[in-house]
């Protein structure tokens, strides 16, 4: 069994290889600070690299118009105390915090914050139980997906998760996601482009202790 340090190092290297931005945070409060800073420093809703002024067909333009004027941080399913701490920080930074009804926000969410249930070092993969629809959408429709991964939950390979995953798959209504890097395509001339239908970027905060 490789040491935690080896696993964290390997996980970080593999995740960075596929464009994930990996940081280590010492505490959950540090993680929340990090997310809020990231959101505050981000341009609001940047659908296109060139910005929202780029011409599109009418339905696409209309959808874009539904995006909120303020920056939006979606953090569904947080424990009450954690949510309060995040809400306080959001208020202080003029960020709109949402926890549900993400379906109404397909026009754009700036940051989606979720916890990861496990990490796979060999491939830099996050494992996230996304059976809850709001969690699922937060990882799908946000421009930046930020995942907090407790360091102790990193395993060497997917095989090491066979038992808990097997149990998850046996539960009706289960939706378990392996997420590795941001969404990507090489469908045009095999040129790699990051950010297609899913997040444009993936940030992973490895939580110590």
């Amino acid at each position: 069994m490789p040491s935690r340090e080896t696993l964290v190092t390997e996980f970080t290297a593999r995740a960075e290889e596929v464009s994930a931005v990996v940081s280590t945070v010492a505490s959950i409060d540090a993680a929340l600070d990090h997310v809020v800073d990231l959101c505050a420093g981000k341009e609001a809703c940047q659908w296109l690299l060139a910005g929202c002024e780029a011409p599109l067909s009418a339905p696409a333009e209309n959808l874009c118009a539904t995006a909120a004027a303020a920056k939006v941080l979606a953090a569904p399913g947080l424990a009450e105390d954690l949510r309060d701490r995040l809400a306080q920080r959001c208020r202080a930074n003029g960020i709109h915090l949402v926890e549900g009804s993400l379906r109404q926000r397909l026009g754009g969410i700036d940051i989606g914050l979720t916890f990861a249930d496990a990490g796979i070092a060999e491939t830099g993969t996050l494992v996230i139980d996304s059976s809850d629809e709001e969690t699922r959408l937060a990882t799908m429709i946000s421009e930046v997906h930020v995942a907090i991964l407790p360091a102790g939950k990193i395993v060497a390979t997917a095989d090491d998760l066979a038992v808990p995953l097997g149990q998850a798959l046996a539960r009706p209504g289960n939706f378990t996601a392996f997420i590795t890097g941001a969404s990507r395509t090489a469908d045009i001339e095999r040129v790699l482009a990051i950010g297609v239908h899913g997040p444009l970027a993936l940030h992973i905060l490895i939580l110590e202790d």
């Binding site: 809850d132 209504g173 939706f175 590795t180």
Partner: peptide, 21 residues
């Protein structure tokens, strides 16, 4: 297939999932 160690997403679904619609 593409020289990737894993694809960006591998999704495991068991039966009808929660869906507000």
């Amino acid at each position: 297939a593409t020289g990737q160690k894993i694809t960006s997403y591998v999704t495991w679904i068991t039966g009808p999932v929660a869906c507000a619609a």
